[in-house]
């Protein structure tokens, strides 16, 4: 509860917001919902630039082929229950959003915040990466105005976002199905591991997220994706074991204070199998 803030601003445009941060005298940062504010490491921030007045709360379908545009101020609660986020393709997004902390925090926490500032919780970034989302990042253009770049949702490396303002996320629509599975020590917990899987036709994306703040953060399981894609719509009877093995082989050795590297890999493999099973519409544990 001891932010050392000297200044609070509430700009009306992305350009104004970017300029406020760029020209700030002390250390400055954007704030969307603010749910990470008290988590420590913010004592140095002198100037907060509140994005709430920016027009970044929209949820809409646009373009051909159709894509879903989600403003970066869209809250996790909205992601859970917005009618445009119904359907099988976006199940992973709903499930990832609904897994975060508690309802009150889901009311405050935003899509942009989870992508930009998430330190230990990779649920939503994993789901977005599995769905092949692209991020819209605004930057100041030399002279005047802002330019918006479209970049692929990143895995561990987030440098593509540095110095920019995430204004929204674009998720390609179409036929498909996704699922997100997470596991924690209690029903309300930062997950020890999570996995998102998405199938669009014969293309698969499987993304593992882990709790650690350090890399690997997110990891696409490309060999597992290839293996599953090769099965087509008729996975072999022993597909679970095969998928588990592929997943274990591909996951990095990564221990932390909470769990061992071995268990993390094993748990992630189990979650991957369960996410795949959900997408394959197989019977799954409740």
């Amino acid at each position: 509860m001891y932010l050392s803030l000297d200044r609070y601003s509430r700009p009306a445009t992305a350009e104004e917001a970017l300029r406020l941060v760029a020209e700030s005298e002390g250390p400055a940062a954007f704030i969307a919902g603010g749910t990470d504010l008290n988590a420590g490491d913010h004592e140095a921030i002198a100037h907060l630039v509140d994005l709430q007045a920016l027009p970044m709360k929209e949820v809409r379908v646009f373009g051909e082929p159709a894509a879903l545009h989600l403003g970066s101020l869209v809250t996790l609660s909205t992601l859970r229950r917005h009618p445009l986020l119904g359907g099988e393709l976006l199940a992973a997004v709903r499930e990832a959003a609904g897994g975060y902390a508690n309802l009150a925090l889901q009311n405050r926490s935003t899509l942009g915040g989870r992508v930009m500032a998430a330190r230990v919780d990779h649920d939503l970034p994993a789901a977005l990466l599995a769905l092949g989302a692209r991020l819209h990042v605004a930057r100041l253009r030399d002279g005047f105005g802002v330019a918006v770049e479209r970049v692929a949702a990143p895995e561990a490396d987030r440098t593509a976002l540095d110095g920019g303002l995430l204004v929204g996320v674009e998720v390609p629509l179409g036929e498909g199905r996704s699922a997100h599975r997470r596991f924690g020590r209690s029903a309300v917990d930062v997950p020890l591991a999570c996995v998102s899987a998405c199938r669009r036709g014969d293309r698969w994306r499987v993304v593992a997220g882990v709790q650690a703040a350090a890399p690997p953060g997110l990891r696409r399981l490309r060999r597992l994706e290839e293996l599953v894609a090769a099965w087509g719509s008729a996975p072999p009877p022993d597909w679970r074991e095969a998928a588990r093995e592929a997943c274990r082989a591909e996951l990095p050795e990564h221990a932390c204070r909470w769990i061992s590297a071995d268990y993390r890999r094993d748990l992630t493999a189990t979650l991957a199998v369960r996410a795949l099973a959900a997408v394959l519409e197989e019977e799954e544990l409740a």
Binding site: T35, N38, Q52, L105, N107
Partner: peptide, 28 residues
């Protein structure tokens, strides 16, 4: 002070929020 206990919950525009994570200025 981290939004995890709920003791500070208030309604902000009708929605439940943890007031320990809302700057007074944000509520303006």
């Amino acid at each position: 002070e981290s939004g995890d206990c709920g003791a500070c919950a208030v309604l902000l525009d009708g929605e439940e929020v943890p007031s320990c994570l809302v700057l007074a200025a944000q509520a303006h």
